[in-house]
């Protein structure tokens, strides 16, 4: 009962804040003109820009084309990074030998900022999708590895000992002890990876792309078109937020013991 009304109050406060911001925006740009339209668009301009890009297109594509292109590249890069990084990190957490083997190379690559890979990726793969997926892969790979490694290391040693003295087979040890035990930190890694994917993708598309949200932002910048820049930024936020929400849902689904 109390919790229910608490929730209601929270939603009301949130809605009021948003409404106040919208009113402030309208006032600042339209009614009082504290901010010149060259710097920040009016709500009406943003609405027009949105209509333009949804219906006619802008920067060589309509909004959904830019949106889907960016989501596609992020998903490819993210999936590739996760499917290599998580098993590798877990293996390094479990086996000292694997850690000794991989860690030196990993320590060398780790401090290189993902964006620093862009020139090399372009030399190798040109300006197409593949180069961007590669750079995204680099960005997402590091947090996936580190957190999967930490996830296995965070498992209480007595749980592993209990499994061994209960006669767990190798498969049971991996599937029923190491993976579920590491999962909370693995998901922390996936969240960080996903964030890194979006940052990197936008940067990659700013440099060279035919479609995509980063390309849209770049073009709008060249055209000195603040309303379209805002549309692009909101679209990036929506795409990132949508994927983060999907990940949170998967996290909840895969760890029922944490919520019940």
């Amino acid at each position: 009962m109390r919790e229910g009304s608490d929730r209601g109050i929270r939603i009301a406060v949130g809605a009021a804040t948003l409404a106040a911001l919208a009113a402030l925006w309208t006032a600042a740009t339209t009614l009082e003109q504290w901010i010149a339209p060259v710097y920040f668009p009016t709500p009406q301009e943003v609405g027009n820009a949105l209509r333009q890009i949804v219906l006619q297109g802008y920067a060589d594509g309509r909004l959904h084309e830019h949106f889907l292109q960016s989501c596609k590249l992020v998903l490819y890069g993210f999936a590739a990074a996760v499917s290599v990084g998580v098993p590798l990190g877990m293996l390094m957490g479990w086996s000292r030998r694997a850690e000794a083997l991989v860690n030196p190379a990993f320590l060398l690559l780790r401090p290189i900022p993902p964006l620093a890979w862009i020139p090399l990726a372009i030399v190798w793969l040109g300006l197409g999708d593949a180069a961007k997926v590669l750079v995204i892969w680099f960005a997402a790979f590091v947090p996936a590895v580190i957190n999967s490694y930490a996830g296995v290391r965070s498992i209480e040693p007595y749980l592993i000992e209990a499994a061994r003295s209960l006669g767990a087979t190798r498969g049971m040890m991996v599937r029923e002890v190491l993976i579920p035990g590491a999962l909370p930190l693995v998901f922390t890694g996936l969240r960080l990876s996903l964030q890194a994917c979006w940052t990197t993708l936008i940067a990659g598309e700013l440099i060279g792309a035919i479609t995509g949200l980063g390309h849209l932002l770049y073009q709008a910048g060249l055209d000195l078109y603040p309303a379209m820049i805002v549309v692009g930024m909101v679209a990036v936020a929506l795409a990132g937020g949508l994927m983060t929400a999907l990940l949170a849902w998967a996290e909840k689904r895969s760890m029922p013991w944490r919520t019940s």
């Binding site: 209480e156 007595y158 000992e161 209990a162 061994r164 006669g167 029923e176 579920p180």
Partner: peptide
């Protein structure tokens, strides 16, 4: 020479699998 189910251990920290 190694742990096994013929020598079952009950630990002070219970050591139950939290996910099971």
């Amino acid at each position: 020479t190694r742990p096994g189910p013929d020598r079952s251990v009950v630990f002070q920290q219970f050591a139950l699998f939290p996910w099971k």
